[in-house]
Design a protein around this nucleic acid. Structure first.
Length: 866
RNA sequence: GCCGGGAUGGCGGAAUUGGUAGACGCGCUGGACUCAAAAUCCAGUGUCUGUGAGGAUGUGGGGGUUCGAGUCCCCCUCCCGGCACCA
């Protein structure tokens, strides 16, 4: 056996061996329990980043563990290959998005393979290839015919200089990122998925997801936002015609406190009022400035202007002025809201600012209302109505019932369940995406492309220039004939949101080569649902909600079974790293990569200064933040793999923190991981050099050997729980480290002792195998010549080794640790109380008095209260 | 702004069901080996106090429940994720 641990050689050899053996090919004829382990597929941005390494290592650890537990594992991989970065790269480097994407995929596939992931590469999918997206197009036409897809206008960010729609991330401080022009809101026609039709199911089925983190389910519930309220109208007369201004509220009990209404700038009533009101017209134009991101709208200064129009309060008959408010958005709800300044904080601020009346209509016991300042209780639902005529004295439920009934009697409203969730707009005015399957015919309207013309292939030799959609400039793409009437027609040049591709890839993996349908039903039934899904917490709402929605769409098309796609979900935290910078004369910060910096610490190890290695001059230490290009604090995983090997990179990633928390990058932590692997190697080497022996089965053991076996089997038990239930790999690794430390202190050399050492080293190798598969593969072959680790089962604890006759109990006085006792495992309570009272430290603190109470927690402690 | 998380030694983290706070690793200090260094090995390492045994104190801040709180409840601060066209 090699004396030194040389990761490069053993990793290459192990990877070659796995490939020859086709070790990770998912078996569709197996009678073992299936385990479909899926990590979110990467966007092929160029090269792997640490977040990928973390994500895929977690998935691989779970895959390999379940494989060793006897499962038929399927772990696929693919590419979320459409998207904006390819267009940006295309513009920057004058290269076609397709070529750029395919190059990146080739490079990143090589990188993934060098990580030693147990992936079934025969199932690889690439979403930008026609053999993938043609089925998305096929589903699109089905959904269009069903009415699940429809067209309406929606508001987008418009860059007036580049004449293009901007993504929210391309709007920086209200300006276009390339042109610097002030961004405007613009209404354009778009196709939508009617996801709201599934809102009730998406909400209710969350209860099926026992294997999902509670926080993710909570976020989805809040996002869907089911509310019980009242939709009602304020009538008004305009040009002799009676119209209705509809609003929705969850606080109908405060309806008698309405002092004005606020409408969106795009509301027809606002447009009407602006016709003869130039000031208002200017204000409406001003409201159109800025982007559409909700965070910006919610944090901007609330502004308004009266329209001069009044509507009639449906219950009091009083005049209610209508204002245009920049915080009211068209298309969300009714584009109009009733305003009750006394009981809504936003309305309160607005009323104070513009001197509008504030009328209290709800009172909470023992509180005093004042219009001077807002108080939390004003918005509470546990008060009773006041200043509300016939509704005075009613509580929330009673008031809502009575008011809804009165509105209904007048034909002006009714109770309504509403969702915060909005329909999913999927049209993108971009090139690098899946073409939308519609032909716009001047006489037939929107006609879906017939099946026999699928796929509509996106031309791959195009380089976009950032000004509008390239497809709209390509007659060879958009010129076509109407499938219905045969007349000349124009193909839709918008492409689909890339969230669409990532909403069904998990199902395609079951039968990636299927040429007859989106999925092969039988194979989909074999593999779905995904047993374990792993991905970043940043996908907790959108991606996961869309994928759940798609599963239901496909279920309703008869393509898949079951209501939900992902049985268990693990949301991984981000990878963060320190930042360093220098202030440049123009005030900008020049960010410096951590790899180029040397840190200096004081005597206690606190960082005090840092210097750029290249020039030896100081740099400023910034915060520890998410690895990103903009802060230049990314650490290239390839450099770590090249220097220490994939096993060290994997081990460090799993050891540094539990998977669902942030992971802080640390060079010295990587060295520590490498050091541990060297220690494992050395321990096996020393043992093997003296000859391998059969692992311990039976025989008389010394106390020390017995203790070692106890710890060994406790560790095996713990790690089964850590990998299986808890999914905390950091604690599993720590337990193996402790075991190795104990093994190092165990000096016995008898034949029996050596068989216990053999047993321990075999177990350590198997316990670590899911995390560091290459070194484990090699060490196993040394420990058990002629045997293959791939065929080994995961260790199970030996109940005999776990038996303990004596245990240690902690003695507390008033909850404070004062000593400990070794007692027989089955000592009874009276006996334990007696022993505790007799304890020296307890005697001292009792000082001759008696104990008030004695708490005995079996197996743990005795607390004497004095 | 709204929704969801988080905060424990010098650092990453452990404490799984309210029961020994700081496992394990990093860093640091001392020692062994070495001509020397690296590597490796051994020992120590929350803070304050004490010669010592020990004592006090300690989980972002403030309050509460409990025999007992890092863990449960209330209030606050700061940090992170998401907010519908980044993926």
């Amino acid at each position: 056996m090699q004396q030194d641990y040389q990761p490069k050689n053993i990793e290459t050899a192990a990877q070659q061996y796995w490939e020859e053996q086709q070790a990770f090919r998912a078996d569709e004829k197996s009678d073992k329990r299936k385990y479909y382990c899926l990590s979110m597929f990467p966007y092929p941005s160029g090269k792997l980043h640490m977040g990928h390494v973390r994500n895929y290592t977690i998935g691989d650890v779970l895959s390999r563990f379940h494989r060793m537990k006897g499962c038929n594992v399927m772990q696929p991989m693919g590419w979320d290959a459409f998207g904006l970065p390819a267009e940006n790269a295309a513009m920057a480097n004058n290269v076609a998005p397709a070529a750029w994407t395919y190059d990146n995929i080739d490079y990143m596939r090589k990188q993934l393979k060098s990580l030693g992931l147990g992936i079934d590469w025969s199932r690889e999918v690439t979403t930008c290839k026609p053999d993938y997206y043609r089925w998305e197009q096929w589903l699109f036409t089905r959904l269009f015919e069903k009415g699940i897809i429809y067209k309406k206008t929606a508001t987008v960010n418009w860059d007036p200089e580049d004449n293009t729609v901007l993504a929210n991330e391309q709007v920086i401080d209200g300006r276009g990122w390339r042109s610097g022009a002030l961004v405007e809101k613009r209404e354009i026609p778009m196709y939508f998925f009617r996801i709201t039709q599934y809102a009730e199911q998406l909400l209710a089925d969350l209860d099926q997801l026992d294997g999902w983190p509670e926080q993710v389910k909570t976020m989805q519930r809040n996002w869907i936002g089911k509310s019980f309220g009242v939709r009602f109208a304020f009538p008004y007369t305009l040009d002799g015609k009676t119209e209705k201004l509809w609003v929705y509220t969850t606080r109908a009990d405060t309806i008698m406190g309405v002092t004005f209404c606020a409408i969106a700038a795009e509301h027809p009533l606002a447009t009407y009022a602006a016709k003869n009101n130039p000031q208002l017209a200017v204000f409406i134009e001003e409201c159109k400035r800025g982007g559409v991101a909700e965070a910006d709208i919610a944090t901007m200064e609330k502004k308004g202007m009266p329209t001069g129009i009044s509507v009639i309060h449906p219950l009091t008959g009083k005049q209610v002025p209508v204002w245009v408010g920049n915080y009211v958005l068209m298309g969300y709800g009714e584009g109009a809201v009733m305003a009750v300044p006394a009981h809504d904080e936003r309305d309160f601020g607005f009323a104070k600012k513009y001197g509008l009346p504030i009328i209290q209509s709800v009172q909470v016991a023992n509180e005093t209302f004042s219009t001077d300042a807002w108080a939390e209780w004003y918005a509470a639902k546990d008060g009773i109505c006041v200043n509300s005529d016939k509704y005075d004295g009613l509580n929330y439920d009673q008031a809502v019932d009575a008011i809804a009934a009165d509105l209904a009697a007048k034909g002006l409203g009714e109770k309504k369940v509403q969702f915060r969730l909005r329909d999913w707009g999927i049209s993108r005015q971009r090139y690098w995406g899946c073409p939308i399957l519609i032909i716009n015919c001047p006489s037939c309207g929107d006609v879906p492309v017939p099946d026999e013309q699928l796929p509509v292939v996106l031309p791959e030799n195009v380089v976009p220039d950032g000004a509008g959609s390239p497809l709209a400039k390509m007659p060879e793409f958009y010129q076509c004939t109407c499938p219905k009437c045969g007349g000349p027609a124009r193909r839709e040049t918008d492409t689909m949101d890339t969230f669409v591709e990532s909403s069904w890839y998990y199902a395609r993996y079951a039968s990636p080569d299927c040429t007859t349908g989106m999925v092969d039903n039988a194979r989909a039934q074999l593999w779905l649902p995904v047993d374990q899904y792993i991905g970043g917490i940043e996908h907790a709402i959108l991606h996961l909600l869309y994928a759940r929605f798609f599963h239901k769409l496909m279920r309703d098309e008869g393509l898949v079974q079951g209501d939900e796609p992902f049985k268990n979900l693990l949301t991984q935290g981000m990878v963060i790293a320190p930042t360093f910078y220098r202030a440049e004369p123009n005030g900008k910060k020049l960010w410096i990569n951590p790899a180029d910096v040397d840190e200096e610490t004081d005597a206690k190890g606190r960082p005090v200064a840092a210097r750029l290695r290249a020039d030896g001059q100081p740099v400023i230490i910034g915060g520890t933040e998410k690895m990103s290009k903009s802060k230049n604090n990314g650490v290239d995983p390839q450099a770590i793999i090249d220097q220490y090997g994939a096993d060290t990179a994997r081990l460090f990633m799993m050891f540094a923190s539990p998977p669902d928390q942030q992971l802080e990058w640390s060079d010295s932590g990587v060295e520590g991981a490498f050091r541990f692997l060297k220690r494992v190697w050395k321990a096996v080497h020393e043992h093997v050099e003296q000859g391998v022996v059969p692992a311990y089965r039976k025989g008389e053991l010394t106390t020390a050997a017995q203790a070692l076996r106890l710890q060994l089997h406790q560790t095996i038990q713990k790690i089964n729980d850590d990998y299986g239930r808890r999914k905390t790999f950091n604690t599993a690794i720590a337990a193996v480290m402790e075991l190795l430390n104990a093994l190092g202190k165990f000096g016995e050399q008898t034949a029996t002792a050596r068989s216990v050492v053999q047993e321990s080293l075999e177990a350590i190798t198997l316990l670590l195998a899911p995390i560091v598969p290459h070194i484990s593969q090699t060490l196993w072959a040394e420990l058990c010549p002629g045997s293959d680790l791939l065929a080994q089962a995961f260790p199970e604890a030996d109940p005999v080794a776990l038996v303990q006759n004596e245990i240690e109990l902690v003695i507390q006085v008033n909850g404070k640790l004062r000593g400990s006792l070794r007692v027989a495992k089955d000592a009874d309570k009276a006996m334990l109380e007696q022993l505790a009272l007799a304890h020296e430290a307890v005697q001292k603190l009792l000082a001759g008095g008696t104990a008030k109470k004695i708490v005995v927690v079996p197996g743990r402690l005795i607390n004497v209260v004095v």
